[in-house]
Design a protein around this nucleic acid. Structure first.
Lengths: 210, 210
DNA sequence: CAGAATGGATAGTCAAGCTCTCCGTTATGG
DNA sequence: CCATAACGGAGAGCTTGACTATCCATTCTG
């Protein structure tokens, strides 16, 4: 297929497809002559993936590029998901030293209690958790951290479901893509469900207090 | 306190504080003369809240403005949280009609099974869920939706914790702010915990397959 | 073979979120 | 009481990200 069809099929405007080609988010088509190219179904899928990561996942294009480079590389699915998580996390905001150390301590203890390896704040997932907890403390809402163990236990249950969804697939490429989708879209889906549940649970309760 | 101290105390540059005043994100200080003003601890807390919502929560300033207007209004905590959720969700991306209807059907059934009221896609929380599920389907990963009930059951457990954290506070203002923090920072925290749990659960499992 | 489409490159646009510069007024330390 | 620093307010300018538009020399296609 050629440009016009690729654009129609994926729902991405021609000018934007060209832009993505320039930025390396979409691999070049197969050349049929010095200045003509042919695209495949893989290109359509790739464009849909870019749309999913930006529009639904809210990732900046640069992160999408890094993620795509990782899934095109020859790392194992597990290593690739590590890259995905780094990009998904982004660069954590800085917080006051005091609150940061408090949050770091909480998380290190959590890691020890639950037996996972402590990576430190250079891991952006950890860095973001530290920032979020520290910010809560700075706002005077450190109570939010009281239930960290319960939250983590539930996160484990969610993660088990996530992994179940991914296993059973037959190709490495497919596993990686499913992992990516389960992580990026899965975050949005679970967050949405949580909001619905919050509204459901708090109906009535919230307005009674003082 | 005056501008310089407000800036130092909150960690927000003077020029940015002025910008926020212009945009109505920060209420004006108390005038002491036609062109001088005094700020209070409430202003510092407000600036911290703005920082939390933008840096950690990732909200655009316009949404922060809407959220702040809502918490300053005289709606009940429950109503206010409704506004917060709308803003947090943002405008959902559009999806193909086919995938959209499939996703809508899934969610409507979920609503019926669990007894919560169906609001339709005008509710942005629902709209985003529809978009995320529809996108998964368009990518050929509709398996992600198979476990919706289990995900929802866990979301309910998380939401119960969220509400427990908020109840027991003594003023309406404090309840609303805690709800906001529990929702915005809570999303980030749970997402981070989920990522750690995914890495923990998938260690080893993910690289075995084919 | 004429007119539409293509690929490639360059420049222009637009919104968000600050940041800089002025300017006339107000505090304030010596 | 005055020199100088800080203030508040308004406007213009800057930077980044993500496109979008315009050209132009090929290459298709009916």
């Amino acid at each position: 297929m050629r440009m016009a069809e690729l654009s129609a099929e994926s729902g991405v405007p021609v000018a934007t497809v060209k832009y993505y080609l320039r930025e390396g988010l979409l691999p070049p088509g197969e050349r049929t002559s010095p200045n003509q190219a042919r695209y495949s179904a893989a290109h359509v899928q790739r464009l849909r993936l870019v749309k999913a990561l930006t529009e639904v996942g809210g990732l900046p294009l640069a992160s999408v590029g890094a993620v795509l480079a990782a899934i095109d590389g020859d790392a194992t699915p597990h290593q690739t998901m590590g890259v995905v998580q780094q990009e998904l996390a982004g660069t954590p905001p800085t917080v006051s030293e005091e609150a940061g150390e408090w949050a770091t301590g909480l998380l290190r203890d959590l890691a020890e209690r639950h037996g996972w390896k402590w990576h430190g704040a250079e891991d952006h997932t950890i860095g973001n958790l530290i920032a979020a907890l520290a910010t809560a403390k700075e706002l005077g809402h450190e109570k939010l951290a009281d239930r960290l163990d319960e939250y983590f236990a539930l996160a484990m249950r969610v993660a088990e479901l996530d992994v179940e969804v991914v296993t059973g697939l037959t190709s490495f490429d497919r596993i990686i893509e499913a992992g990516l989708v389960a992580t990026v879209l899965g975050d949005r889906i679970f967050t949405g469900l949580r909001h619905i549940a919050q509204e459901f649970v708090s109906r009535g309760v919230l307005d009674q207090a003082p």
